[in-house]
Design a protein around this nucleic acid. Structure first.
Length: 489
RNA sequence: GGUACUUUGGCCGAGUGGUUAGGCACCGGUCUGCAAAACCGUCUACGGCGGUUCGAAUCCGCCAAGUACCUCCA
């Protein structure tokens, strides 16, 4: 595959040229949601980030298998080994089956992702559907000697592992320091050391989500699902593993440890992490209670939102920042994105209507290459967008008759917009001017033609009345040099 | 306390050792019957203090402020 895509590898802390293990195949695993609550803005970030990567790799010609899991078991609250299972708790509170909770929120997640134009992954495995694989993976770690059984639970022996491998290489953590800084255990714990983590947990009597394993009736630890499912579908070694930065430790660190312990090597070649979305400079998160759900964005039903924001506005907003930067949410910033996107989309529609001239007075050379270079530079979507805005100016100039464009340049512009804006950034036009029936559209045209006549007769009262009342109904009326344009905004 | 990161113009946000990022807002202009849209122009910044350099916002050091992770979080 001929390309120069570089991606930032968290493991090496630098950008690396991407080369897949088994060209032309690419295996990519991304941590999906724990389905016990409505998807919020934070969930949109990794979904969109890795959607861009998925689309781009496909465009480059790779055959990508994209696995994004659904965590529906084993994710505990509070201390990683003590709290109640998040799904089970929600089920208990709502007095429904855990799988009802799971299904409900999976559905909600899917419809939100669909609205955001996030392509579905190739495989979306549920942790609860891969208990056997997780038991087997745990057994392999036990067999390798890096785990121990205690009271029916199985724990990963971090200290022993650290002697043979290095624990903490992803997050840059030092295990000696961790052992010093963590408080001593109260003596009743089943764990030998506080840094050890659960691979399998024995279920307490009231714990409803449980399966039979050699060690006990219980459930898998949170980190186990990704190791088990990732390697099941992508092989013992695969190309890319992504997720939010907040998962780097302990989740991804533990995954690395599990894989190395069981397989003798790290499964993942490129670790990629998207940064957080902040609100007032603080991370937007479930635990802080300052998150805004995607549905609230779409409906505008939240005290921090001045108005509803469409899914594409959210997507564009996220893409206007680089995925490794934090992005600070505010209603004001979203409004700015909304306007910019609207202009870009309108330009795209105008582009389709331009007529070529014999020669160009605008310069569009290198546009495609610039956009491609930006994508290759660790998916620099803000730069791609800035190039699109530069091109937009040319489109508008031609549209206004202030510049001319040759056939060749016009088709390049069309190709670039289609490729980068629509196919790769995944932006789509949400304004549906073709809305309604033909008769309805003709009726609006009729009204505006009457206005046009009124204008010719300098009957400003009639002209303004039609325009103002249509505007009040939510139509957007634009005069052009020889007519008008309208749309329902 | 430990580790890491961040600090860019009114706001959001890229980026590079020397060249206008881009968007939004504002202001002025062109266009328009008036608007809207569009175009042109204006504003043109890089936390503070030192250092390296012909030249640093970009590299180094110190300081300040903030954030994240070290518990569950995308």
């Amino acid at each position: 595959m001929e390309h120069k895509l570089s991606i930032y590898n968290t493991l090496s802390r630098k950008k690396e040229l991407f080369t897949p293990l088994h060209e032309p195949k690419v295996g990519m695993y991304v941590c999906g949601p724990t389905v016990y609550g409505d998807p919020h803005l934070g969930h949109a970030r990794p979904a969109i980030t890795f959607d861009i990567l998925f689309r781009y790799l496909n465009y480059l010609g790779y055959k990508v298998r994209y696995v994004r899991n659904i965590t529906d078991v084993g994710h505990l609250e509070n201390d990683a080994d003590e709290g109640e299972d998040k799904i089970a708790k929600k089920a208990r509170l709502d007095q429904i089956e855990p799988m009802e909770v799971v299904q409900y929120y999976v559905n909600r997640y899917h419809s939100a992702m669909d609205a955001l134009n996030v392509l579905p992954p190739s495989i979306e495995p549920h942790a609860s559907g891969h208990i056997m694989e997780q038991i087997e993976f745990t057994q392999r770690i036990l067999d390798a000697g890096y785990a121990y059984e205690s009271e029916g639970s199985v724990y990963f022996d971090v200290v022993k592992y650290n002697k043979d491998y290095k624990y903490g290489k992803l997050s840059g953590r030092n295990i000696e320091e961790m052992l010093e800084t963590t408080r001593t255990l109260d003596g009743q714990s089943e764990k030998r050391r506080s840094v050890d983590f659960a691979l399998w947990k024995k279920a307490s009597p009231e714990h409803i989500m449980r399966w039979q394993a050699p060690w006990s009736m219980g459930f898998p630890g949170w980190h186990m699902e990704c190791s088990a499912m990732g390697t099941k579908y992508l092989g013992d070694e695969f190309d890319i593993h992504g997720g939010g930065m907040d998962l780097m430790f302990p989740h991804h660190e533990c995954e690395i440890a599990q894989s190395c312990a069981a397989l003798g090597k790290d499964s993942v070649r490129y670790w990629m992490h998207n940064n957080m979305i902040t609100i007032g400079g603080q991370k937007m998160g479930k635990s802080l209670g300052n998150f805004i759900t995607l549905e609230q964005f779409f409906t505008g039903q939240h005290s921090l939102l001045s108005k509803p924001f469409s899914p594409m506005t959210i997507r564009f907003f996220i893409l206007q920042a680089h995925y490794r930067s934090t992005v600070d949410f505010s209603s004001e910033a979203l409004e700015a994105s909304e306007k910019g996107l609207e202009r870009l989309m309108e330009g795209y529609a105008r582009l389709q209507k331009l007529t070529p001239s014999a020669q160009s007075t605008v310069d569009v050379t290198g546009l495609k290459a610039s956009c491609g270079a930006a994508m290759n530079d660790d998916l620099n979507t803000p730069i791609v967008i800035s190039h699109l805005f530069d091109a937009l100016r040319n489109i508008n100039l031609v549209y206004d008759g202030k510049a001319a464009i040759a056939e060749k340049d016009l088709s390049e512009l069309k190709e670039v917009f289609k490729l980068f804006m629509i196919d790769l950034l995944g932006l789509k036009d949400e304004v549906n001017s073709a809305e309604g029936t033909e008769a309805y559209q003709k009726a609006i045209d009729l009204l505006l033609n009457i206005r046009l006549e009124a204008k010719k007769n300098k009957d400003w009262a009639t002209s303004d009345r039609i325009r103002n009342e249509l505007t009040a109904m939510g139509f957007e009326i634009k005069d052009t040099k020889d007519g008008f344009e309208w749309r329902l905004s």
